[in-house]
């Protein structure tokens, strides 16, 4: 009986409010405002690093300094990083001098996520990468604006179908489609492949 209950497929439909918020183009203006806010935060943060010292120059000295500071375990009080495995991970990257190239990934990642969110291109993917960066900054002990940006990124991710509707996704998503529903570009390519096979 228990097994039957567990294997039975029961789907609970979302309430209309949730459907409107995450799946309707009516909510697109709201997501546009959130996209602008989060995107602008990423863009200005990334751009500040492009202009600043120690990120794209000086072999990532700014990132090295940051990593060296957060792996410290003070004798009194709590360390910046709460999880030992994450501290070991940062220490590993520090020991192998990964800051020399990792700084580039952070800087251009921030700039690209910012631009993608502002223009609404693959908004869900951009929000995911943004959330990953926020998550890592928080694991590293930096609160700052990260909790708020992380929350907005998760919401944008949940609303991926419509969050870029007032943006490039208006045309990009129908063209590319999804793995379970191919878009116009994929369908056209498949059609050509099938035609070629038929000729052979």
């Amino acid at each position: 009986m228990t097994l039957r209950t567990l294997t039975r497929n029961v789907e609970f439909p979302d309430p209309p409010f949730i459907r409107t918020l995450f799946s309707s183009t009516l909510a697109a203006p709201l997501w546009l405002v959130i996209r602008f806010y989060v995107g602008w935060q990423w863009l200005t943060s990334g751009w500040g690093k492009v202009d600043g010292d120690g990120w794209l120059n000086q072999d990532g000295a700014a990132l090295q300094g940051f990593w060296e500071r957060i792996v410290q375990e003070p004798e009194v009080g709590r360390p910046p990083i709460a999880f030992g495995w994450y501290r070991d991970f940062i220490q590993f990257m520090l020991d192998n001098e990964w800051y020399t190239w990792f700084a580039w990934i952070i800087v251009w990642g921030e700039v690209l996520v910012g631009i993608a969110l502002i223009v609404g291109a693959l908004t869900g993917v951009a929000a995911l990468f943004g959330a990953v960066m926020n998550f890592n900054f928080m694991l590293a002990g930096t609160a700052s604006t990260n909790p708020v940006l992380f929350l907005f990124a998760v919401l944008l991710l949940l609303a991926w179908k419509v969050s870029g509707y007032i943006g490039i996704d208006r045309w990009l998503l129908p063209a590319l489609g999804t793995p379970w529903s191919p878009g116009a570009v994929i369908r056209r390519r498949r059609g050509k492949d099938q035609e070629a096979e038929a000729v052979e």
Partner: peptide, 19 residues
């Protein structure tokens, strides 16, 4: 044009006036 503007705006205009 939008993408180019988004790249140059933060460096050229302060805060809200860049946004």
């Amino acid at each position: 044009g939008v993408a180019v503007l988004a790249v140059i705006a933060p460096a050229n205009w302060e805060g809200f006036w860049g946004f």
